[in-house]
């Protein structure tokens, strides 16, 4: 991967990649692995980009696909992430990836969602339209709204429990 490609096509969208990778990893080491793998896959798949969508949409799509694949691989290798309802407190306090504490807690809550729900809520929070979310995830836009509301309620419940 040339430095130019990284500087021009990846670095301006690093925020997207970081936000997504953070939602699928619970350690700095894993986060860096995922980030690198996403960058590599974006570079690998650059020829498949047909300009039918924005480059940023493409970056979202590749990032989510890579994270979902890596998560699946790790699970099949017996390395599981915390997806249960009860997340050990030690993890919550240790994993302070961001300076903003509320944001950290939100991420901890997001990590408790299923893989697809995580993707959905991330795209929603990034202010993607339901149609864009559907395009990125390859689903029907009709169901997105209902699903997003359910996820938001769940996140609110998790955060309320945490803060109260």
């Amino acid at each position: 991967m040339s430095n130019d490609f990284y500087q021009v096509s990846i670095l301006p969208f690093a925020g997207i990649i970081i936000k997504i990778c953070r939602a699928y990893t619970d350690s700095q080491e894993d986060f860096e692995d995922y980030y690198q793998e996403v960058c590599l896959q974006i570079w690998r798949s650059r020829d498949n980009f047909r300009e039918q969508c924005l480059w940023s949409t493409w970056v979202y799509r590749v990032s989510l696909n890579v994270c979902l694949t890596l998560l699946k691989k790790r699970k099949s290798n017996g390395q599981t992430y915390f997806t249960s309802d009860v997340l050990p407190d030690v993890r919550i306090t240790e994993n302070r990836a961001f300076e903003d504490e509320s944001l950290n807690q939100l991420y901890v809550a997001i990590r408790q969602l299923s893989e697809i729900d995580r993707a959905l809520i991330l795209l929603y929070l990034e202010e993607k339209s339901y149609q864009e979310i559907a395009d990125i995830l390859g689903t029907n836009a009709g169901n997105i709204g209902v699903r997003v509301n359910r996820i938001k309620e769940r996140l609110k419940k998790i955060l309320d429990e945490k803060f109260n």
């Binding site: 670095l11 970081i18 944001l103």
Partner: peptide
């Protein structure tokens, strides 16, 4: 709001 404000003030969005 948490998301928006969190990332608005966030300085740690540094790519590895």
């Amino acid at each position: 709001v948490i998301w928006k404000e969190g990332f608005l003030n966030e300085r740690s969005l540094v790519a590895p």
